[in-house]
C-alpha cells in the first residue's frame, strides 16, 4: 500500500513549515526527498515516523507498518559498541556474527566491539545505516545518510542500501542529485 500525505500542514509557533502538502510514496520503491534547507524535509519524515502529528491533513498507509530509520544525528547509544547498537533494534535471528558481517560490508572492521563514542563521525554514520537496514521493517527512512562519508565510501554504502532494501519502501533525504541517480530513486522536490 502506498503512503499518502493529504493536505498536511505543520506549524512551529509562527513558522508554517508545511502547508497543504500532498505527497505519495509508492510501495516498494526508493524515494529521494530534496529541497532547500528549512523547507520541511525532516518534518515530513518525523510525521511519517509518528514523532510529530500534523496540525491538519492526514497520512494514509502507515497503519501496521514497521519503520526503521537512520536519523540525522545518528542517535546511537554511545556507551554500547557497534554490534550492541545494531542488535538492540533487531530480533533474535540477527546474531552477533551476522551483524559483524554486515558492518564489514560497509568497511567497519576495526573498533566494532568498542563503545561507539570511540568511533569517528563517518564510522558512527555507517553503524546507524546498518542498524536501520538490519531492523525488521517494511519502510526505511534515512535523513542525509551519506553525511560525512567520502565519495568511495558513499558509493559502497549506496550499493549496500540498494541490496538491503529490495522490496521495501525507502525514503531518503539528500542534497545530491547524483545520489538519486545511483539509487534509481523517485525524486520528490519540496519547494
Amino acid at each position: 500500500m502506498d503512503i499518502r500525505m493529504i493536505q498536511v500542514s505543520k506549524q512551529y509557533g509562527a513558522n508554517q513549515v508545511l502547508k497543504d502538502l500532498n505527497l505519495t510514496f509508492q510501495e516498494g520503491r526508493c524515494h529521494c526527498l530534496m529541497g532547500p534547507s528549512g523547507i520541511g524535509k525532516t518534518t515530513v519524515i518525523n510525521l511519517l515516523m509518528g514523532l510529530e502529528n500534523p496540525d491538519s491533513g492526514s497520512i494514509l498507509g502507515m497503519e501496521g507498518r514497521r519503520v526503521a530509520a537512520c536519523f540525522q544525528e545518528d542517535r546511537l547509544i554511545e556507551h554500547l559498541d557497534a554490534i550492541s547498537n545494531v542488535k538492540l533494534v533487531c530480533d533474535k535471528r540477527i546474531t552477533k556474527e551476522i551483524v559483524e558481517e554486515e558492518l564489514n560490508k560497509v568497511g567497519l572492521i576495526d573498533y566494532i566491539d568498542k563503545p561507539v563514542s570511540a568511533l569517528s563521525g563517518g564510522m558512527k554514520r555507517r553503524v546507524a545505516i546498518v542498524r536501520a537496514l538490519l531492523a525488521s521493517s517494511d519502510l526505511v527512512i534515512m535523513d542525509e545518510p551519506f553525511k560525512g562519508l567520502d565519495q568511495e565510501l558513499k558509493y559502497r554504502v549506496i550499493n549496500y542500501i540498494i541490496e538491503k532494501t529490495k522490496g521495501k519502501t525507502l525514503i531518503i533525504i539528500t542534497h545530491d542529485k547524483e545520489d538519486v541517480k545511483r539509487l534509481e530513486a523517485n525524486l520528490i522536490l519540496l519547494s
Binding site: 556507551h79 554500547l80 550492541s84 542488535k87 566491539d113 563503545p115
Partner: peptide
Amino acid sequence: HYSDKSKPIGE
C-alpha cells in the same frame, strides 16, 4: 556498558 567480553544486547 558492554565491555569487550560482555554479551551484546539481544544475544
